[in-house]
Amino acid sequence: MSTPRIEVDISKIRHNTQTVVGPLKARGICVTAVTKAVCGHPAIARAMLDGGASGLAEARLSNVQRLRQAGLTCPVTLIRTPMLSQVDAVVHVCEASYNTEMAVITALAAAALRQNRVHGIILMVEMGDLREGIMPQDLGNMAQQVLDLPGVALKGIGANFACLGGVAPTDAKMRALSDLANEVEGRCGPFSQTVSGGNSANLPWALGEFATGRINDLRLGEAILLGVDPITGDQISGMFQDAFTLVAEVIETDTKPVRPILYSPDHTLARMQLVPDTFDNTRIILGIGHQDIDPVGLSMAPGDRLVGATSDHLVIGTKNASPSVGTEMRFEMNYSALMRAMAAPDTQTNLHNDQPGPNARAVQDPSRHLALV
């Protein structure tokens, strides 16, 4: 088979979705499945929907178009603030979008009127992560402006955590977001179809002992795809961590000096150690590199270690028996490595177990407790 490739077990993604949807549903929280890490792959999106996700969320318009071209008609929300240059296309393929700029919302409204549609607006609030978001004191004014615009409908508010600033979604933050929803509705009237509390980092809070308040939606990608808590990296019990496997091919294997051999009249340069001094000198070179993956996001087998990578070579040092040229090596990936691998044009995606079972849309018993391990 061709390499590099990603082997995807669709049944494990479906299972992971079911496993998290049930307990969250019991607490009044819907799951919007985020497909941006897999570039809107239609089969993976369908597995999430079969597992009980209420809809899909994407950050890139091209990925949404891929979903639509594959025949998916479920609600899709654009979770990155739309670009002004793309508002017509956003309105055409997305039911709603997350927004922070009135100029963009005004343009979306005009595009919706041209298309005889009503586009949903969810306002993102800055809650400490310092990426996108309206400052809380400005939320009421913007909500009122959205309500006054024909062509758009205010559908709710949302927040983001643990992406740029690493701010965790605490119970206090969630109560503050619920209070903001109440305050805006007190000023503008009932509107909040959605109060989206955040992403996969919210799971420990959402599945804990705290009251959920007004939070009724989470946008989950990493937890479903990889079965881990994005803040701690801990595994989530009952969920698979190996739905995705990267397969790469050995193109060279040899015993080499531990230190580079440098010949230079410049003694400073001669003392430079361009490759780390490692515990081994048996090197494996694979036909992938920075253009294909995030090297530090790959799991290493016992006895192997990452030496380094260039644009198209990955170098591993090993204490194990050297594999022959042409041997395939398999790696699990973290979220960063998965995103880059799925977007790499030379990496093939192979699907396994792509048939939903008879109870594909059934959700897990809500009484089952999920825990991080």
Rank of each mutant, 00 (worst) to 15 (best):
T3C: 07
P4C: 01
R14Q: 12
N16M: 02
T17N: 09
T17P: 12
V20Q: 04
P23E: 09
V34C: 08
T35R: 02
T35G: 09
A37S: 09
A43H: 07
M48V: 03
G51Q: 04
S54R: 15
S54H: 10
E58K: 08
S62T: 15
P75T: 02
P82F: 00
V87A: 12
V87H: 11
V91I: 08
V93M: 09
M102W: 02
A103W: 01
L108C: 09
L113F: 00
R114H: 12
R117E: 12
H119N: 04
H119D: 01
M142E: 10
L147W: 12
L147A: 14
L149G: 02
A159L: 14
N160E: 14
M174P: 10
S178M: 10
L180W: 06
V195G: 05
S200P: 14
S200V: 06
L203I: 05
L203H: 06
P204S: 03
E209K: 13
E209M: 02
F210M: 08
T212K: 11
G221H: 06
L225S: 09
G227H: 01
I231C: 08
I231L: 15
I231Y: 08
G238F: 11
D242L: 01
F244Y: 04
V250E: 05
D254K: 15
R259M: 13
D266P: 05
L269M: 04
R271T: 13
M272C: 10
V275H: 03
D280T: 14
D280C: 15
I285K: 04
H290P: 00
D294F: 07
D294A: 13
P295K: 04
L314E: 02
N320S: 13
S322T: 05
T327I: 00
M329N: 04
R330Q: 13
F331S: 00
F331I: 00
M339R: 07
R340T: 03
R340F: 00
A341V: 01
P345L: 07
T349V: 15
H352Y: 08
N353W: 10
A360G: 03
V363P: 06
D365T: 10
L370A: 01
L370F: 10
A371W: 01
